[in-house]
């Protein structure tokens, strides 16, 4: 466990030194929101339509920005053969997975913290149920990132990894996106946390199931 944290710390240190991935993810995520709000145009005046569309826009921007980061997550380790160097260390394969999941999730949370205020401005929201929204975003992100990290490792040794990752990832995260969008919608419509207990439960179940599966299959995903 402690070594997962070392791996995550190593990733974050390298990332914050260049901020390459973080910057592109933030900009991409903001661009998605701007493009959507521009393309909706006059509809944004109609608050009823906005409440129905906006949660989807938010999660699309998270998903796409996240995919950008995930596609680099293990690809970055290929430079100088670092992934092999890591596999030569006496650590369990799952420690590599856990470390990567932690660093990916931290970066994703940062992107989300920057995106949400801009989203609120663009779609004329005053966010009230911030705690509830935070729980939804955290649970949704963990589910998305834990599957995404696994698939990032799975595709890293293929020729067409940038193409393959979204194709593999999107059908698998349907069960994250749907409850996350529903719950976000309810929270934005001044809902209470008790209104989204079903969604939260499903997200939690998803997180747990895929976290366990990842522990079991990760070694095969990064094997030579």
């Amino acid at each position: 466990m402690i070594r997962s944290l070392h791996i995550a710390a190593k990733d974050l240190k390298a990332e914050f030194r260049t901020k390459q991935m973080l910057n592109s993810m933030v900009i991409f995520s903001l661009l998605v929101i701007v493009i959507f709000s521009v393309s909706f145009g006059d509809l944004l005046g109609n608050s009823k339509i906005v409440t129905q569309l906006a949660p989807g826009v938010l999660w699309i921007s998270f998903t796409f920005a996240g995919m950008l980061g995930l596609s680099r997550s293990f690809a970055g380790e290929l430079e100088n053969g670092c992934l092999e160097g890591l596999k030569l260390c006496p650590v369990d394969r799952s420690a590599i997975y856990n470390g990567k999941t932690i660093s990916n999730a931290v970066i994703m949370f940062l992107v989300e913290i920057i995106t949400v205020p801009l989203f609120a401005v663009m779609f004329n929201y005053s966010i009230n149920g911030l705690a509830g929204l935070a729980i939804v975003i955290i649970l949704g992100t963990i589910g998305f990132i834990s599957v995404g990290t696994l698939l990032s490792a799975l595709t890293v040794n293929t020729r067409t990894r940038e193409l393959l990752l979204p194709i593999l990832l999107l059908p698998i995260i349907i069960p994250v996106i749907i409850p996350a969008v529903l719950a976000t919608g309810k929270m934005l419509a001044n809902g209470d946390i008790s209104d989204i207990s079903g969604e939260l439960r499903l997200l939690a179940v998803y997180d747990i199931i895929f976290f366990i599966i990842a522990q079991l299959v990760f070694e095969y995903a990064i094997g030579d």
Binding site: K13, A14, R17, N80, G81, G85, P90
Partner: peptide, 23 residues
């Protein structure tokens, strides 16, 4: 190996320390 297994963004000292921690 002919691959160096080193992280370009980290310093020499950080690289060695990271791998030391892995051991």
């Amino acid at each position: 190996s002919h691959e160096t297994y080193l992280y370009s963004e980290l310093t020499a000292w950080e690289n060695l320390r990271f791998f030391g921690r892995m051991y």
